[in-house]
Design a protein around this nucleic acid. Sequence first.
RNA 1: CGCGGGGUAGAGAAAUGGUCAUCUCGGGAGCCUCAUAAGCUCCAGGAGCUGGUUCGAUUCCAGCCCCCGCAACCA
Length: 492
Amino acid sequence: MNPKNKKPAKKTAGKKKFFITTAIPYANAAPHIGHALEVIQADVIARRARQEGKKVFFLTGTDEHGDKVSRMAMQSGVAAKVFVNEISKKFKEFKKTLGISYDDFIRTTDKKKHWPGAYKLFSELQKKGDIYEKEYEGLYCVGCEKFITEKDLEDGECPLHKKTPEKVSEKNLFFRLSRYESKIRSAINSGKVKILPEERKNEVLAFLDEGLEDVSFTRSRKNVPWGIPVKGTDQVMYVWCDGLANYISAIGYGRDKKMFEKWWPADVQLVGKDIFRFHGVYWLAMLMSAGLPLPKKLFIHGFITVNGQKMSKTIGNVIKPDEAVSKYGRDPLRYYFLREIPSDGDGDFSFEKLATRYNDDLAKGLGNFASRILNMVDGMVFPDKLTVSKEVREEIKRARARVQKHFDEFRLNDALAAIFDLIKFGDTYINRTKPWENKNTKTISDLVAMLRDVVFLIEPFMPETSKKILSSLPVKNGKLRPKKIKPLFPRI
RNA sequence: CGCGGGGUAGAGAAAUGGUCAUCUCGGGAGCCUCAUAAGCUCCAGGAGCUGGUUCGAUUCCAGCCCCCGCAACCA
């Protein structure tokens, strides 16, 4: 089976819906720059879809239950609810800082919006006979007050408390994950669920080949009090069961059938490589069990290091996005993440590299390109429909096609590269045609056309910048009267 | 022999069984002056190692070395 796209050139104009989700970050700590990558990517894809005239629902949120959260809350001496309120507020602000155009923000502690969907999903699994009770035996450390795994042990002891853990068993409800092994495989193989990039697809398939075991889908309330109670038991839902349900609860599953049917299945779901398996396996199995359609695409992104190192509090290299935004601005930070880091791989962040991208690509590249054109045409009048030479027209066409192609595979860094190639072409074209000498109106018209196209193409990536340039290209009564512009990216 | 991914100029990326292995940043030289001391052109520098297949391999195959992720009930 070759899943290469052989789709007919169909027009996607009109009111096609587009449902896109990000993973919901776990609310045990404030957001840092590592969280930025995924939401920025999702935002670009969402904005591009809107540009294409699709009706977009862009969902994000926070995952707020579970053991870790309640522990963190206890440590800071506040109630869990107060704690997650604070964190989730920070994530909302964080998204504002980055200019994320999300349509809804789901919180798993939202009893009105999220819980009905989580309940319904769980009970659908039960109805299907995929939930059963089983004794779970594990190693329990009294010091940690939780189950720990074999590999956490050092010399048979809990490394934190230097105690031999006790064997404790508890009754949990298990999900019959094993039942879905071959179904998941064929859904992925057939391309019904498209997994991008391709390597990730191989990764799940290999994982499936190792065989799936059923998974405990509840926790004893005694040990993990902070979660969604499972009716008629002393258990709460396993955080993943609870958390994954957000993708459907937010759009009305369990409370608004019409809305749910309008948006589901997701057109694309973005997740980090660390939680890919939960999505590529658990999530698909859950949907199958509940008799729901599968997401069309899963896109897996990588991780960010800082100065080549893993970000960590102990190293003290945790970067807060506000720092970067206040120094360089929102669009430049977005640009950095989208351009410097391959969309489907890992990447590094450093202020030095950000400065380089800012000065070289944005100030000297895009910014200067806009300036030299707008300065030249300041005060001139053009018809809204510009006449464009064949050479330039074809160059624009080529750039558009490349951008489209890369968007289809979510290779946003390559899409940006294509746009900047157009800018490069434009700069060369100016030098070659010397419009400042000959004032050739045809060439000048070409330049304006290129700039307009650049503005259009960068809009999903850098919406503010796009808007600024556009305001220097006002059209009134079919006449385009460009104006000078202040430097978009003053050199730093 | 656990599973998966990867090793391309100083840095980051891309393509490819065969005339120049491409792009961006950085380094060097020249040109231009509309523009944000911006722009353009040219130059230097590269395929982890070892074998194999082939008329020919960076590209295909095998082995080795090195790096990264995963190895599930912790989200």
